[in-house]
Amino acid sequence: MVKETLFEIQSLYRDTFRVTGYRFGKGEKAVCIVGSIRGNEVQQLYTCSQVIRRLKELEKAGKLKEGKEILVIPSLNPSSMNIKKRFFPTDNTDINRMFPGYHLGETTQRIAAKAFDIIKEYVYGIQFASFYMPGAFIPHVRMMKTGFEDVEMAKEFGFPYIVLRNPRPYDTTTLNYNWQIWETHAFSIYTSNTEKVDEDSAKLAVKGILNFLDKEGVLTYAGHDGYISQVVDDKDLISVRTKEAGFFECCVKVNEEVHKGQLLARIIDAYEGEVKDCLYAPWDGIVLFMHDEPMTYEDTAVIKLISLRENR
């Protein structure tokens, strides 16, 4: 393993902005794994650190295949995480809205360009991504339907679900989308949280990645194969929305099977403590996503269910 500074940008007073990479093996640029891009992606960074730890062990044990290179970049934005800011410190822009980047452009366009020059060469690209709404997920692989997505390959991670969705206008500047356009097999991995560490889902993600790398002939890993992934289209997910604002009290857990009419959550009046509203399952399903902040607004999709086959 070689630890190196992939690129850096001088700051005015702060320490230099450095993006660090860990290279395992030499030869074909096989896999690039990217951890956090936003300053609040703590779980994504943690999971990436665990990937690096496991790859070091496997390298020591001689389990990495000859002629294959793995590059792991734990963070493309250390400056933001160090000051607990989600976006770039000076201009509040999102690096994951700047790909493929522009070398003569603004700071985050330059960061994206410098990064993308390095990471676009790889056959497989894996990013630990985060959702724009606060909440917990069943770990899954998420893919955009660009025409380049390879669902069968995504099953090699052995995660319970693969979620497909149509790209939206803003997606065209994300890392995942551009990886796909540049013909890298790109996968976004969602573990359970963003701003706090969940060791169990990080372990599941690390195992999934090692499974994938084993099946693609990048290393040898003799772990459990994981799940037979179910492919779900994002438009088929069932959103359960709030009709009131207040404390959010969830009555089920992520990954729980729920039945039509089952109580999913209560909304509690923030001043008087009374139950203002109850949210019930509109269909039988599995809880894929659950809002995980103590409070909620009105008209917010707080739960997303995967419809059970019997509903269809």
């Binding site: 940008i9 001088q10 700051s11 005015l12 000076t90 201009d91 452009g105 603004e106 700071t107 330059r110």
Partner: peptide, 8 residues
């Protein structure tokens, strides 16, 4: 006034 490399 404060600029980073690349600031417009």
């Amino acid at each position: 006034p404060i600029v980073d490399e690349g600031s417009l």
